[in-house]
Design a protein around this nucleic acid. Structure first.
Length: 491
RNA sequence: GGUUCCUUGGCCGAGUGGUUAGGCAGCGGUCUGCAAAACCGUGUACGGCGGUUCGAAUCCGCCAGGAACCUCCA
C-alpha cells in the first residue's frame, strides 16, 4: 500500500488527495527550459522542485514516467514584437546556426542539472523533433471546429471555445476581462479576436526555422508542443502537469483548451506550479535582466554575490522554503543554508559509528513518521527538514553520551537519513579533493597529526599550534575531539 | 484597469483558532592547554486599525506596503 499524499491542484486551488489514473503509476509532465540562454536560478527552482516530487513519488513506491521537454523552437522575442523566433535572433547575434545555439544551451542546462544532482527525466523530448505530432494536433483542432486558417497561419478560436467550454479556470480569468485589455501583436489583423493564439504560424521570408505543413511553410504555435508531446508519451489524460507559476497564463490555459479541443477531454488531472525566486523582492527573470546564472552562482562571479555557492547549497536552500512560496535570494540566506547543510551532512555521516545501548531514550519511529507525513502534505520539505534537524540533535546527543540508542533504532535512523538526505532530497557530499581520493594526502596529514600529538604530549604548545595554524592557513580544519583528532578540507 | 497572492523575531522561513516549527546569527554555560566542533540553556515574533470568539499570528472588514499574471519567461 502506497502512502496517501496530498497535492495542491492549481485548477481547484486546494489540496487534494492524489489518486493516480492507473494505480501505482504516475505520469508527470513538466515544462522544461527554452534553450536560448544560459541556465539560471529560476530554471533550477523548477527543475529541483519537480526532481523532489519525482524522487518522493518513487520513494513511496510509485512507478513514475517523468517527461520534461526542451523548447527549442517557436517563442517570440522579449522586446521585439515582429514575430521573429527567439532562438533565431540569438543565432544571428552569435552567428551560429539556430540548432547550434540550441545544442549549446541544452548542453549547459544538462551540465548544471547534473551538478545540482537533478535526475534526468524518463523522457526529454524536443519540440523541434515533434513537428509532425504538432501538425497532427492542429488538424484535430481544425476538425473539431475550434480553429481557423488565416493567410497560411492557423489560430485557436478562443471565444468560440469559451462559449461552449470552460476557459480561464486554471488562471482564474474571465474572458470578458481579457477582451478589454490586450496589446497589439503582429498578425493581429489575421485573427478574429485578440485573444486567439497561434497553432501554426507562417514563416516570414527571413525566418530560418521553418517546416512544411498543409497551411504554409512555418512553425508551430507557442503552446502546442506540450500538448503534442504529453499526449504522445503520457496519453490523452495523465496525472500531473507541472511548471513555473508564470506559465499558468497563457501557456497552460492554452494547453488546457487545445487538449480539450483536440481530444474532447481534459488532459491534466493535477496542475502543480512552483513559485518564483525573487531578488530584492522582485522576480528574477531573463527579461528583467536580473537573473543570476547558475554558472555565476557556482563560481561567485557576479556583483551581487559575496562568494561562490555550491550546487548542493542551492539545492538545500530551495528545499528550506515550500515550493509554492516565493523564495527571496540573499547572501545571508544562502550562507545560513550552507552552514545548516554542513551540519546535516556531518550528522548523517556520524550515524553508523554511534554507540548503541540496551535502551533508546529517543523515538526514531515517530521521527520517521513525521518526516514522511510532512512530505506527503504537498511536498512540505521545510517541515521535513525541520524534523531532520531534530534527528541531527539526536545523533550529536548520542555521540556526546547525553542520549542512548538501541542497535535497531540506529539502523532505522540510518535508513531514514539515507532515504531522506540522499534519495529524496537528493543531497550529496561535496568534499573537495574527496576524502580517500588521495591516499598520499591522508598519510601526509596523518604524519603531521602524529607529530602534533607528540608535541602536545610533551606540552610543547608552540609546536602543536604551529602545525594546526599552518595547516589551517593552507585550508585544513583540525579538530581535537574526545575520540582523537580529525581533519577535513575547508569549504 | 482586471485577476490572484503576500506582509512572521537580527536574516531566511514553516504554521493557520488554544500547545516549542526549523536553520543561520547573537547571548550564557559545559568540554578543551587554547581554539574549533559538539552539547546544554536562552529570544514570548506574527504590517496597522476595527470586528467575530471564552480565546486570533491564524476567521471577517477596512487601511498601508509589496509581488505575480494579464506580453516571451522557471
Amino acid at each position: 500500500m502506497i502512502q496517501e499524499i496530498q497535492i495542491y491542484n492549481t485548477l481547484t486551488r486546494k489540496k487534494e488527495v492524489f489518486e493516480p489514473l492507473v494505480p501505482g503509476k504516475v505520469g508527470l509532465y513538466v515544462c522544461g527550459p527554452t534553450v536560448y540562454g544560459p541556465p539560471h536560478l529560476g530554471h533550477a527552482r523548477s527543475a529541483i522542485t519537480f526532481d523532489l516530487i519525482f524522487r518522493f513519488l518513487k520513494q513511496i513506491g510509485y512507478k513514475v514516467r517523468y517527461v520534461r521537454n526542451i523548447t527549442d523552437v517557436g517563442h517570440l522575442v522579449a522586446d521585439s514584437d515582429d514575430g521573429e523566433d527567439k532562438i533565431e535572433v540569438q543565432a544571428k547575434l552569435d552567428e551560429l546556426e539556430p540548432m547550434e545555439v540550441v545544442q549549446k544551451y541544452t548542453n549547459l542546462f544538462h551540465q548544471a542539472m547534473e551538478m545540482l544532482n537533478v535526475q534526468p527525466p524518463s523522457i526529454e523530448p524536443r519540440a523541434s523533433g515533434h513537428i509532425i505530432e504538432q501538425i497532427e494536433e492542429v488538424k484535430k483542432i481544425l476538425n473539431s471546429g475550434y480553429a481557423y486558417e488565416s493567410n497560411g497561419s492557423v489560430y485557436f478560436d478562443v471565444e468560440k471555445f469559451a462559449s461552449e467550454n470552460e476557459y480561464g479556470k486554471l488562471s482564474g480569468r474571465k474572458i470578458e476581462d481579457q477582451i478589454s485589455y490586450t496589446r497589439t501583436l503582429d498578425g493581429q489583423d489575421e485573427k478574429r479576436s485578440a485573444l486567439d493564439f497561434a497553432l501554426w504560424k507562417k514563416a516570414s521570408p527571413e525566418h530560418l526555422m521553418r517546416w512544411p505543413s498543409p497551411w504554409s511553410e512555418g512553425f508551430p504555435g507557442w503552446h502546442l508542443e506540450c500538448t503534442a508531446m504529453s499526449c504522445k508519451y503520457l496519453g490523452e489524460t495523465f496525472d500531473i502537469h507541472g511548471g513555473g507559476m508564470d506559465l499558468t497564463f497563457p501557456h497552460h490555459e492554452a494547453e488546457m483548451a487545445q487538449a480539450q479541443a483536440a481530444h474532447g477531454k481534459q488532459a491534466v488531472r493535477y496542475w502543480m506550479h512552483n513559485n518564483m525566486i525573487t531578488l530584492n523582492g522582485q522576480k528574477m527573470g531573463k527579461s528583467l535582466g536580473n537573473a543570476i546564472s547558475l554558472e555565476e552562482l557556482f563560481s561567485g562571479n557576479h556583483p551581487l554575490l559575496e562568494k561562490a555557492y555550491s550546487p548542493m547549497t542551492i539545492r538545500f536552500f530551495m528545499f528550506q522554503a515550500h515550493y509554492r512560496s516565493t523564495l527571496d535570494f540573499s547572501n545571508e540566506a544562502l550562507q545560513a543554508s550552507e552552514k545548516g547543510l554542513e551540519r546535516l551532512m556531518k550528522a548523517t555521516a556520524r550515524i553508523e559509528s554511534l554507540p548503541v545501548s540496551e535502551n533508546s531514550s529517543v523515538n526514531i519511529a515517530e521521527l520517521s513518521a513525521n518526516c514522511f507525513t510532512a512530505m506527503a502534505d504537498d511536498m512540505n520539505s521545510p517541515i521535513a527538514i525541520a524534523y531532520l534537524f531534530e534527528g541531527v540533535k539526536i545523533i550529536n546527543s548520542v555521540a556526546d553520551g547525553n542520549s542512548s540508542i538501541t542497535l535497531e533504532d540506529r539502523i532505522q535512523l540510518n535508513s531514514l537519513f539515507h532515504s531522506f538526505v540522499f534519495d529524496i532530497l537528493g543531497l550529496k557530499s561535496e568534499d573537495q579533493a574527496g576524502s580517500g581520493s588521495s591516499v598520499v594526502l591522508n598519510e601526509v596529514v596523518a604524519l603531521l597529526m602524529k607529530l602534533r600529538a607528540e608535541a602536545k604530549a610533551s606540552k610543547d604548545w608552540a609546536t602543536s599550534d604551529k602545525i594546526r595554524n599552518e595547516l589551517s592557513a593552507i585550508g585544513f580544519d583540525i579538530k581535537d575531539g574526545k575520540e582523537g583528532v580529525s581533519w577535513e578540507l575547508k569549504k
